[in-house]
Design a protein around this nucleic acid. Structure first.
Length: 660
RNA sequence: GCCAAUGUAGCUCAGUGGUAGAGCAGCCGAUUCGUAAUCGGCAGGUCGUCAGUUCGAAUCUGACCAUUGGCUCCA
């Protein structure tokens, strides 16, 4: 047989040659340096046979981006070996350490175990030490293909249900391979590879980072395994950089900044996931509301209000009961009637639609409300402002005809893009979430042909609008497909921010109709949309996005006026009054600290402008300022300064043009 | 909800069986100062909660609550 090298040359080899044979045939130096290979572009390893005629590229330490994948994968096996040795050394039977899966992930790897006891953080240190010993021992890896029955028999003998299940689920035509490190008596694991050829080829720049529970195969009805996470990098600098980035991310964490900047707080007496907005946080929320109100009014929305409670009947009609009941706070009984706190605003808006007969002339009807909803989220899922139980939706429902659908849908997408531009959000993924036929009647309303039709409508609207998106199976809303915008927060967690959902179900359930031009009663479509997500999540995201350094228009306190001595207090007050009159949020620091201390405390609160006034300024009617937004200036006339700030705040400017 | 870790003053943290500590923040006083911490004093805690062990518990044990990291779920 022969293979093709990257330069196009053909290399003759005996049949069943492995990657290592290819490297050896090219030269002894390369054979020593080789760590893996790409076969027809796909990552493979030296232990695997190369198919005849394939294009083969040998990877060495220089191809670190590829090799690190192999190394992380092998490190997962080294981790498993170390965990087994660690527990065996304590006297546990080797078979009591059962292995789940151990894949490569971003920055590293993990391995899931079913163990005779819980691991502790101290164990991680000991396990890491054993891993380093395994790396230092430079154990050779071997790959063997095993008959399905032999593989099953092996794991049945070990009473390992996990590997048996994995093998049983492998398609018949896939060869079952094992990787073994350390020879006959070494550590062996079911694995499709690829791996580095020996543990000595692993970087020592790895670290076990955390310990977590994880359901077997991600299914909450199945056993919970213990997962050990690790990170690994090709060199020390990359590991250091990664750890440093984690530290930096922690500084942006909205929970930390939210407390430091007096934005929100959580109180045990109130309850988990029920945040309190402090005055400074309330300013931010109200600025968002003002923004949304302006943008929506210009886009033809009307604003409505609805109560927080309703009789169960409403949610039976909407279809939320019973399928959504476990996410709702339990009912309260009043006058022998069950009432629920609302988890969504939509049923109320449907009732507003139904409050009078509607004509096609009323459509599209766009009803907006920033109503607070309550959802009984799993305790373990709560997280700062990002995942809460009381949330103010940036909500609206658009009722329209099928003919109007595309324009309305794109109008909402344009709202997103407008907001993303305003907030300089440039890294996000738009996702079209679709139904799965298997969920019809359970997770999704049982209207197969409507699902297919609306999904096609959404897809064509997006394509015609030139919007990039990915499609996600089995992630739709109960009542229709949706477009979500996924963002990654500063601390590396993914969240859904904006959402835009098509609803072909609820209008019918509520008997919503309009009289069309032809005099016929017809059922409108409904769009549920929340381009600013919930105000809780949006503020949480913005805190991290700006690292607490808000643009002027969002900053809770825009100007801090610092008098140099007490005698400058009257002028400082005059400055603040002028700024306030121009619509700015300004405070005077009249305390008895030294000026330096006052500047420091204003900086710690990340106040965008600190105005310093002393004799010079008071005499001339000017201000001197230092700013987080533009270079420091002295002796600026008060009126010019106030106009400058007021203009930027009014325009919701992201960047400030320096005052000239 | 599940697995694990953590919980001491508003914040950051010390205190491993013998009467609760520090710095910062707060309050009071002195200082009146030119772009990131002036000095002194005062006050502040049922050590997450409830039980248990003990002559004695912040410290040991248990249950519960909350937070954090994950899993599941989601705006």
């Amino acid at each position: 047989m022969h293979v093709v090298l990257p330069d196009g040359k053909q290399l003759d080899l005996p049949d069943r040659a492995t990657g290592a044979d290819v490297a050896a045939a090219i030269g002894p130096g390369l054979a020593r340096a080789a760590l893996g290979l790409r076969v027809d572009g796909r990552l493979s390893d030296l232990l695997t046979e190369v198919p005849a005629g394939a294009t083969v590229q040998i990877l060495t330490g220089r191809d670190s981006a590829d090799v690190i994948e192999l190394q992380r994968h092998t490190l997962a096996h080294v981790l498993a070996q170390a965990v087994r040795e660690h527990l065996e050394a304590e006297g546990h039977a080797p078979t009591s350490v059962r292995l789940g899966i151990g894949p490569v992930i971003e920055h590293g790897f993990y391995y899931d175990f079913d163990l005779p006891r819980s691991l502790t953080p101290d164990d991680l240190e000991a396990i890491e030490e054993r891993m380093r010993a395994i790396v230092a021992a430079d154990l050779p890896l071997e790959r063997t293909v095993v008959e399905r029955d032999a593989a099953l028999a092996r794991y049945r003998a070990l009473e390992d249900p996990y590997k048996v299940e994995l093998i049983e689920d492998l398609p018949e035509d896939v060869p079952i391979t094992f990787y073994r490190q350390g020879g006959e008596t070494g550590f062996s694991d079911l694995c499709r590879g690829p791996h580095v050829p020996r543990t000595g080829a692993l970087p020592t720049h790895f670290k076990l980072t955390s310990l977590a529970g994880a359901y077997w195969r991600g299914d909450e009805r199945r056993p919970m395994l213990q997962r050990v996470y690790g990170v690994a990098f090709a060199d020390a600098a990359a590991l250091e950089k990664h750890l440093w980035q984690l530290e930096e991310a922690k500084k942006r964490d909205h929970r930390k900044l939210g407390a430091e900047l007096d934005i929100f707080t959580l109180d045990d007496d109130i309850g988990p996931g029920l945040p309190l907005w402090l005055p400074r946080g309330t300013i931010i929320v109200e600025e968002l509301e003002r923004l949304a109100h302006e943008v929506e009014s210009a886009a033809g929305y009307q604003h409505v209000r609805s109560p927080h409670l309703s009789k169960e009947q409403l949610f039976i009609k909407s279809g939320h009961l019973p399928y959504y009941e476990e996410s709702m706070f339990p009912a309260m009984v009043i006058d022998d009637q069950k009432y629920f706190v609302k988890p969504m605003n939509c049923p109320f808006h449907h009732k507003i639609y139904a409050a009078r007969p509607r004509s096609y002339r009323d459509l599209p009807l766009r009803l907006a409300e920033y109503g607070t909803c309550y959802r009984y989220e799993d305790h373990g899922a709560l997280m700062g402002l990002m995942r809460v139980r009381s949330m103010q939706m940036n909500d609206a429902h658009i009722y329209c005809t099928e003919a109007q659908f595309e324009a309305e849908f794109m109008g909402v997408i344009e709202l997103y893009l407008h907001y993303f531009d305003l907030f300089a959000i440039d890294s996000y993924v738009m996702r079209l979430s679709k139904h799965a036929a298997s969920g019809l009647g359970k997770k999704y309303v049982d209207e197969p042909e409507l699902w297919i039709r609306t999904e096609a409508m959404v897809r064509s609207a997006l394509e015609r609008g030139g919007i990039n998106f990915v499609e996600a199976e089995d992630e739709a809303a109960f009542y229709g497909p949706k477009i979500d915008v996924q963002i990654t927060s500063a601390i590396g967690r993914e969240f859904t921010l904006a959402t835009n959902q098509v609803d072909f179900s609820q209008p019918g359930r509520f008997d919503l109709t309009y009289v069309d031009e032809d005099g016929q009663r017809k059922t409108p479509l409904c769009l549920h949309r929340a381009p600013l997500s919930t105000h809780e999540r949006m503020v949480g995201f913005l805190i991290e996005h700006y690292a607490g350094d808000f643009p002027l228009w969002l900053a809770p306190e825009q100007v801090r006026v610092v008098p140099i001595a007490d005698r400058h207090l009257p002028y400082a007050t005059e400055v603040a009054e002028r700024l306030t009159r121009d619509g700015l949020r300004a405070e005077v620091d009249g305390g008895n600290d030294r000026m330096n201390a006052k500047v420091r405390s204003a900086e710690l609160k990340k106040v965008p402008y600190i105005v310093i006034v002393g004799d010079t300024e008071a005499d001339a009617g000017t201000v001197s300022f230092r700013s987080r937004k533009e270079p420091q200036r002295n002796g600026v006339p008060l009126a010019a300064f106030s106009d400058h700030l007021a203009r930027h705040a009014r325009e919701r400017a992201g960047q400030v043009e320096g005052l000239t």
